[in-house]
């Protein structure tokens, strides 16, 4: 199949990229755009490691075809830090020990940031609901809940 050109805004930057129609958004970002932070854990939308935000809503990028994001805004884990400093969500995951092997973490943090953007004061139950699409096998989630609470608190405090 001939490649087709799509343009998308990735982490605030407009990019044109030649894709094959069967490439997923995840593959496109990892292989063609060389942003390897997002991970494939299952390829079937069941683990959330590939979570990205498309036009402000989180998706499993392993199930989205590259041409579908033509003209859209995509944010990956690489787009979270700004001006050389970590996003408060990223910092909170470090501080609470909310990460171990790290493989689920890029997707988890994109989902957590989106959760806090939608709800600046999430309760524990809301955090548990909001992150249910992001499997973590290492932490048992306890320190991830703490990280999201801490991040929300710091963001509310203007960090």
């Amino acid at each position: 199949m001939p490649r087709q050109l799509i343009s998308l805004t990735i982490n605030g930057r407009e990019r044109e990229v030649a894709v094959e129609p069967h490439w997923t958004l995840l593959e496109t970002v990892r292989e063609a755009l060389d942003l390897t932070g997002s991970k494939e854990g299952c390829g079937t939308g069941d683990c959330g490691a590939c979570t990205m935000s498309v036009d402000g809503r989180i998706v499993t990028s392993c199930l989205m075809l590259a041409p579908q994001v033509n003209g859209r805004q995509v944010t990956t884990i690489e787009g979270l830090q700004s001006n050389g400093s970590l996003d408060p969500v990223q910092q909170a995951f470090i501080d609470t020990g909310g990460l171990q092997c790290g493989y689920c973490i890029p997707g988890m943090i994109v989902a957590a940031r989106n959760l806090i953007d939608d709800n600046p004061s999430p309760t524990l139950d809301q955090i548990r609901e909001g992150l249910a699409g992001n499997l973590c096998r290492c932490t048992g989630y306890t320190k991830i809940y703490e990280a999201v609470e801490l991040a929300a608190e710091r963001i509310r405090g203007g960090a």
Binding site: G48, I58, T60, M64, G133
Partner: peptide, 9 residues
């Protein structure tokens, strides 16, 4: 249906 991610898609 699935996760938030699924519901968004």
């Amino acid at each position: 249906v699935g996760s938030l991610q699924t519901m968004n898609m």
